[in-house]
Design a protein around this nucleic acid. Sequence first.
RNA 1: GGCGCUAUCGUCUAGGGGCCUAGGACACAGCCCUCUCAAGGCUGGAACACGGGUUCGAAUCCCGUUAGCGCUACCA
Length: 470
Amino acid sequence: MSVRVRFAPSPTGYLHVGGARTALFNWLYARKLGGVFILRIEDTDRERSTDAHTQVILDGLAWLGLQWDEGPIFQGACGSRHRADAERLLAEGKAYRCFCTPADLEEQRKASAAGKAAFKYDGRCDRLPAGEVAARLAQGAPSAIRFRMPKGEIDWEDAVHGRISFQGHDLDDLVILRSDGTPIYNLAVVSDDIDMRITHVIRGDDHVSNTPKQIALYRALGHEPPVFAHVPMILGSDGKKLSKRHGATAVGDYRNQGILPLAMRNFLALLGWSPGGDREILPESEMIAAFSLGGIQKKPAVFDTAKLEWMNGQYLSQLSADELLAPTRRELERMGIALDHRDLRPVINAVKARSRTILHIAEQVAVRLDGMRTKRDERGQQLVAKMGPAYTTNLRSVVEALEAVPESDWTPDHLLGYLKAVAEAQSLKLGDVMQPVRVALTGSTVSEPVNELLAVVGRQQSLARLRSAS
RNA sequence: GGCGCUAUCGUCUAGGGGCCUAGGACACAGCCCUCUCAAGGCUGGAACACGGGUUCGAAUCCCGUUAGCGCUACCA
């Protein structure tokens, strides 16, 4: 039987990095086994689901290059099947009607909390005589359908964790169909996974405790459960589950910060999984070839932004200026800087070695071609002050010499010669003539070699800016 | 509280009884290169949570302790 896996996010928020990694593992597994990767949108929570969120998820997956083979299938469209499954369980005596209202249950919960024990539905409606049930239904009393949880042990061989077992008597008789006829998550998932002939359920560890309930449901519906693989959570630097207060948690946030999709995907793959050996930067083909569920870590992983940026830098350095051009332009557009008429490639080449993100590249381009001052370079003025009067004196000497340089000599090689000549003539160290130029042109003490910087900014612009600075 | 899961450098991990005086990567420190900063190269500090077993031999197997995390809805 061929492998069929699914990624099933609910469109109630953005595409979280944890979700993205779950999607990635599903995708890798499908690709590795020649299986089918299906996208299902779990939108049964009508209140919180929106089309906008769905679109963000679709965009995020596409950006990461995780192409799905089937779907997106919308769970909300399968309500009649969910209802039919619930009613079948009811008819077969595997479920029962529950007339407890949410208010009743709230009260039961409170009473139980006082006794320090965990609340567990006591099955009072399961003990209602058949006549009573019929009478209440006849009166039109609203009722939900509850699944009667089998009492024995429920266990499975988890592809990541190994054997996990629960005792049926620790589990609740869970509601599977609300009184308004809509399904509850655990039923919808099982019903859909059966319908879609899912063979492997690869999802987050937060679903481990749902698994025994779902296995019971599978059996009650007359189907063998699929293979389950529960992948560990992703934590913030403080060891708590990654959330908004840790800063960026959505895939889109990293996209906006100038992270490349392949770098993001590679980083995510290494969070909780290792190809074995010492490999880190993996092309898609190697990643797929090396992937296995057994190679997934059992413990949660901390999301380390520094390593993500390092990895992004690795990918960045492998790309040519031509390949970096489009993303850089997109970033500049987002920044509201119009440089459409300029050839950005020489500048990109000059700055990319010192950049870890596309955003940083775009900023450097803007500084050079648009005279933009970035926030991080605002301290340029302070640097000038720090250099004292020598800054102005030395800068003037350079400007004077550079003004005599013809356009035809305005190249990195020739400029280096001119700068060295200035240093020699003034008995200065090369750094003493270069650093003022660097600061004047970029507002920063950090940049590519000054002769390259001058070439990239261009003769006219360089001289104009240096003059006004000196 | 109950149930479940987990436990190797600060972080991501290699490791599946002897190859481990525990390897790699990020981060950090130093050196080289150098006009600055990156990149690159070299060097360094840094971990098997604790306690019992099993075994000739345990990071690796078993038990317990501790700690962390997850779940505990007519949410998903």
